[in-house]
């Protein structure tokens, strides 16, 4: 996954480095600009079992700020925001690998450095008893819950 570049960013940014479970890392540039969740929409994506994006809908593309071709075949962690504690993602993967559904409130990173909050439900795509990949559906979150997460997540690092 490529590092984020300053010329892609809108507004003032802060630089962070994300370290991923596979040992790789990514330089990201983060702003404080929030994009509102599109009313009445669902953001939908599918990944293979290693978390690489195989499908995404128009709302996913639009909210991410990337072009579709920049998203397909990329790790889903392209959306990872440094404010979300790694423990949340560990819980997500542990739950999915057990064949169960995971729900949670997540702040996603956009290509332009901004962010958007979502309520995520992710499930394994089980076909003939074998997990073929994962589907993730994000919907507009309760603002009250988001405010709770804004307070809670910094305590989880």
């Amino acid at each position: 996954m490529n590092d984020m570049q300053p010329d892609q960013i809108v507004g003032e940014y802060v630089e962070h480095t994300l370290n991923f479970y596979d040992g790789s890392s990514r330089k990201i540039l983060v702003t404080e600009i929030e994009t509102e969740f599109p009313k009445g929409c669902l953001i939908v994506s599918r990944t293979d079992t290693s978390g690489v994006i195989t499908h995404c809908n128009e709302s996913f593309v639009k909210m991410s700020g990337y072009a579709r071709e920049e998203l397909i075949d990329q790790p889903h962690s392209i959306l990872r925001h440094p404010d979300i504690p790694p423990a949340a993602f560990a819980d997500l993967w542990n739950t999915l690998e057990k064949g169960e559904k995971w729900n949670g409130y997540v702040k996603n990173l956009r290509k332009d450095g901004g962010y958007y909050w979502v309520y995520v439900t992710a499930i394994p795509n089980i076909r003939n008893s074998v997990t073929q990949g994962y589907t993730s559906v994000r919907r507009e979150p309760s603002r009250k819950k988001v405010e709770e997460c804004i307070k809670l997540y910094p305590t989880m690092f």
Partner: peptide
């Protein structure tokens, strides 16, 4: 059939 399976997965994420 995979379209139907995907629809099942999608509905499953909404019924929570």
């Amino acid at each position: 059939q995979e379209d139907a399976e995907f629809m099942v997965d999608l509905m499953d994420t909404l019924i929570t």
